[in-house]
Design a protein around this nucleic acid. Sequence first.
DNA 1: TGTCAGTTTGGCAGTCTCTGCCATATTGAC
DNA 2: GTCAATATGGCAGAGACTGCCAAACTGACA
Lengths: 195, 195
Amino acid sequence: MAMPLRARNRQSAVHHIIDTAMDLFDEHGYQQVTVDQIAAAAGVSPRTFYRYFGSKEGLFTTDPYASTDLAEVGRYLDVHDIPGSFQRLVTLIAERSGPDAGRTGQAWRGMRYVLEEPPVRAAVYAALEEGSRGLADLLRAEGMTATAARVTARAYWFGVYFGSLEQWHLDGRVRPLPDYVTEALAALRASGATG
Amino acid sequence: MAMPLRARNRQSAVHHIIDTAMDLFDEHGYQQVTVDQIAAAAGVSPRTFYRYFGSKEGLFTTDPYASTDLAEVGRYLDVHDIPGSFQRLVTLIAERSGPDAGRTGQAWRGMRYVLEEPPVRAAVYAALEEGSRGLADLLRAEGMTATAARVTARAYWFGVYFGSLEQWHLDGRVRPLPDYVTEALAALRASGATG
DNA sequence: TGTCAGTTTGGCAGTCTCTGCCATATTGAC
DNA sequence: GTCAATATGGCAGAGACTGCCAAACTGACA
């Protein structure tokens, strides 16, 4: 409620367009639906659509509810316990996506297309890279070398974080999400133990 | 030389187009150069360009010399020593890119645009995901769970492998590439030791 | 050498994504 | 109620990409 009126209106418009687009995608398929159709169905001009989302794939990377912003990561990050940090972070996300999830739950509608449509996938990966780079900056600020920070950030952000979300989704979202992170962290630790 | 004539001609055409495109990119910038211009400069029709590369970004993901194919990974993979496997794999790549590198050395010309141009970056990430998925399949075939395989593959492929290449390139390619992998693996091991 | 099937290439028309520009409408403050 | 800031819409156009068909080319075989 601290958000000014303008921003709130914009946000509700964004959500409405996303929902409309997902409806169309579910019915006709991602590639078959044009931006013009989405805009028309949502009652805005195509020009406005592009102002909001930048691109068709922007539908999957723009929603602030669907992605975790970096400030939040910073709050949960302990450089000396990275696995624990990710466990806490994902647990938080899981709570938000619980049974009482409002719009947050809807955000997962798009995951199907992230998995199935290469252009969407590419866009989401580019967005993930943003997060990974931010995390790497945090790690470097704590004394890690450039190489260590880059590699660690990407391994945990792409591997542990996104990998867990993905597998959780593929399994139908029935098992608790934190379990996947636990398993992911164990696998990562086991893989490195031998070398 | 085992390659049939047709395939060899095609490959030399591909290399010629890539070289021509990189020249144009270096001179005018990636976004400023159109596919039509590349095709014209290389002496082929735009239609043929698209048949070869599929897209403008395909210039960076098509060259077989620039990417490591999965069969090769399979040969070097030991599930019980994943860090060692990657160390060996990257050492091989480094040897290929040595001072005597012919076309292979040229392949690195594109890395600049992979780092700087978001569309190129997205395309390369999508291609990396292919490799990661293939690696995950290999790991699952050796008894890993789906989650462990997915997470491990992505952490090493995106993090250790690509992260090392990237940092090596950013540092001017003066230090030996395998050193970066060693450092990356150590960082990964250290990060997980505490959890 | 000449023929012929299979493959590769080029040209064309058209769709879709995305952007710059300017006019119009809406908003929120005073 | 007026005004400046901001959001929206419409338009024109560039560039990426595809389907389609005709022309050129390749390599084998008679």
